[in-house]
């Protein structure tokens, strides 16, 4: 459980109401990662959704593309809620990072309990997926070394 104020500061959740945030706070855990640590591996079962609070996380896609996400306002690990239910990228911390972790099953329970929240979350996730779609397309770079 985390403090609701921590979630209020996140840009990712700015459309969510105070009561939504309180429910999210009840299932969220602040996790701390060291520089160079891998948060999740591409292809592993996606069990958690994260919101980046502090630090930089590099999402490395299997096609060689990467997307650095810096400081608050980024949702990571959407596959915990929608197919393919496996992480589509590897998440590596470039710096020490703090992420708020939400177990996918708990989020499902929240969605079941609160449809309006579910719609907002799904819309947010749809947007994130759309934004990152271009990173998942096959790359045209080959390793030369």
């Amino acid at each position: 459980m985390i403090d609701t104020r921590e979630l209020k500061e996140s840009r990712y959740l700015e459309e969510f109401s105070d009561s939504d945030l309180a429910e999210l706070a009840a299932i969220g855990t602040a996790t701390h990662w060291r520089e160079g640590e891998i948060i999740f591996h591409e292809g592993s079962p996606a069990k958690n959704f994260f919101i980046l609070k502090k630090g930089t996380v590099l999402l490395c896609y299997p096609n060689g593309r990467s997307l650095p996400l810096k400081n608050g306002g980024h949702g990571i690990g959407w596959s915990s809620l929608v197919s393919p239910f496996r992480y589509t990228a590897t998440g590596i911390c470039l710096t020490d990072a703090t992420l708020i972790q939400f177990p996918g099953t708990e989020l499902y329970s929240l969605i079941r309990m609160n449809a309006a929240f579910g719609h907002k979350l799904m819309a947010k996730i749809a947007k994130t997926i759309e934004e990152r779609k271009k990173y998942r397309t096959k790359g045209d770079r080959q390793e030369q070394m």
Partner: peptide, 28 residues
């Protein structure tokens, strides 16, 4: 050696292999 544009993952892999100090921090 990788050629531009390059993949950050590959850059990190090579940096780690060569024992470059704090490759993640410097990349950031």
């Amino acid at each position: 050696r990788l050629g531009e544009p390059f993949s950050l993952q590959q850059l990190l892999e090579h940096a780690e292999k060569r024992g470059i100090r704090r490759p993640y921090y410097h990349l950031d």
